[in-house]
Amino acid sequence: MTTRWGIAGTGAMAAAFLADFAHAPGHRVVAVGSRTQQRAGEFAEVHGIDHAHTHAGLLAADVDVVYVATPHPQHRDLALAAIAAGKAVVVEKAFTATLAGAREVVWAARSAQVFCMEAMWTRFQPAVVRARELVAAGEIGEVIGVQADLGAFRAYDEDSRLFAPELGGGATLDLGVYAVSIAQHFLGTPVSVTAHGTRYPNGADASAAIHLAYADGRAASLWCSLAAETPGRAVVIGTGGSVEIAPRFHHPDTIVVRRNGEAAEAVALPPAGRGYSHQVLEVGRCLDAGLTESPVMPLEDTLGVQWVLEETLTQLGITAVEGRVEI
């Protein structure tokens, strides 16, 4: 049986995600929704999607899963509406603009027993899956730390969504979410966050250095930036060695395993397509099993990540707000 997907949003993220359905047998995008019927129709025509709707029409359509790919501050309202319509929902990261918004969505999904997952595609990449398996098997001993950076230079443009605070723009929500999520994946939620960073003239965050501390002495050192290119490397550090998720770690094709006293071992594990298909297949597995959360990307992890993101923005002097979507 084919799992029918609808996409809420018509931007670059929606187009990139859509392309990888060629690598996800049993899944098909059958509808797209936007604020206007015209924009949805244009996107559907370009990408060969059968049905185009407003957001309200998409939620009433015959789809099994709604993928939310709009700017961050619109995620909350669209996810809540999808849950109210009884649709499984996959929400782009950052999951919401605020921790309160994330808690609303999680509460609604759990109360309604509707599947909900943050679209943190990195966790489903073959290289990251293998890293997780090695760590679980004790190959690098006890995990004591994570280092991760993700910088992607973008010329400052106050008219671009990427730099618009009211649309969730800035380094933390766009890039920092990856670094925070990889640390959360291997270390869990910290007890404290310390953040420093720089800002653009309009107040959006240009870069952030984030330190996560844990009660038992473990720690994570993270960096994100829209003002400079960085390698994009993540390293999980243990008492017996380390696993490097080679650049760029958010969609890697190689890991490097370093065991104390031994030569480094590089393992090539390329994704299918760009790599989005792996999370599509995870959603299918969960729905087939009757699950309402992914065991790889559970909602509790999403809440932990959102807490760190909000702490970071607060310490940078930024207050994120949720937007409103008319449905």
Rank of each mutant, 00 (worst) to 15 (best):
Thr3Cys: 01
Trp5Gln: 01
Thr10Pro: 11
Gly11Pro: 14
Leu18Phe: 08
His23Phe: 12
Ala24His: 04
Gly26Ser: 09
Arg28Gln: 05
Arg28Val: 04
Val29Asp: 01
Val29Glu: 01
Ser34Val: 04
Gln38Val: 12
Ala40Ile: 15
Glu45Trp: 14
Asp50Ala: 15
His51Gln: 09
Thr54Gln: 10
Asp64Tyr: 07
Val65Thr: 14
Ala69Lys: 13
Thr70Arg: 04
Pro71Ala: 00
His72Met: 07
Pro73Ile: 06
Asp77Cys: 14
Asp77Phe: 11
Ile83Phe: 10
Ile83Tyr: 00
Ala85Asp: 02
Val89Cys: 02
Val89Ser: 02
Val91Gln: 07
Val91Glu: 05
Val91Phe: 07
Ala97Glu: 03
Ala97Pro: 10
Glu104Phe: 15
Glu104Cys: 07
Val105Phe: 05
Val106Lys: 03
Val106Gln: 00
Val106Ser: 01
Ala108Ile: 15
Ala112Thr: 07
Gln113Val: 02
Val114Glu: 06
Cys116Asp: 05
Met117Thr: 12
Glu118Met: 09
Arg123Lys: 11
Phe124Ile: 07
Phe124Gly: 05
Val129Ala: 05
Arg130Glu: 07
Arg132Cys: 10
Arg132Gln: 14
Val135Asp: 05
Ala136Gly: 12
Glu139Asn: 13
Glu139Arg: 15
Ile140Lys: 06
Ile140His: 11
Glu142Trp: 09
Val143His: 15
Val146Trp: 10
Asp149Trp: 09
Asp149Glu: 03
Ala155Met: 08
Tyr156Pro: 00
Glu158Trp: 12
Ser160Lys: 04
Leu162Ser: 12
Leu162Trp: 01
Leu162Cys: 02
Leu167Phe: 13
Leu167His: 13
Gly169Asn: 08
Gly170Lys: 08
Ala171Ser: 10
Leu175Trp: 08
Tyr178Trp: 15
Val180Arg: 04
Val180Ile: 13
Ile182Leu: 05
Gln184Gly: 09
Gly188Cys: 02
Gly188Tyr: 11
Val191Ile: 11
Val191Ser: 12
Ser192Ile: 07
His196Gly: 03
Gly197Lys: 10
Tyr200Thr: 06
Pro201Arg: 07
Ser207Ile: 00
Ala208Met: 02
Ile210His: 01
Arg218Asn: 09
Ala219Glu: 14
Ala220Trp: 15
Ala220Tyr: 14
Ser221Tyr: 13
Trp223Ala: 05
Cys224Arg: 03
Ser225Lys: 13
Leu226His: 11
Leu226Val: 03
Ala227Gln: 07
Ala228Trp: 10
Glu229Trp: 10
Gly232Met: 06
Val236Cys: 03
Gly240Arg: 10
Gly240Ser: 13
Gly241His: 06
Glu244His: 10
Glu244Met: 14
Glu244Val: 08
Asp253Gln: 13
Thr254Glu: 10
Thr254Phe: 06
Ile255Pro: 04
Val257Glu: 02
Gly261Ser: 05
Ala266Lys: 12
Ala266Ile: 13
Ala266Gly: 11
Ala268Val: 14
Arg274His: 11
Arg274Phe: 04
Ser277Tyr: 08
Gly284Leu: 09
Gly290Asp: 02
Thr292Ser: 11
Met297Ala: 03
Leu299Asn: 05
Leu299Thr: 13
Thr302Gln: 00
Leu303Arg: 02
Val308Asp: 02
Glu310Val: 00
Thr312Trp: 15
Leu313Lys: 06
Thr314Val: 02
Thr314Lys: 06
Glu322Asn: 09
Glu322Ser: 12
Arg324Asp: 00
Arg324His: 09
Ile327Val: 06
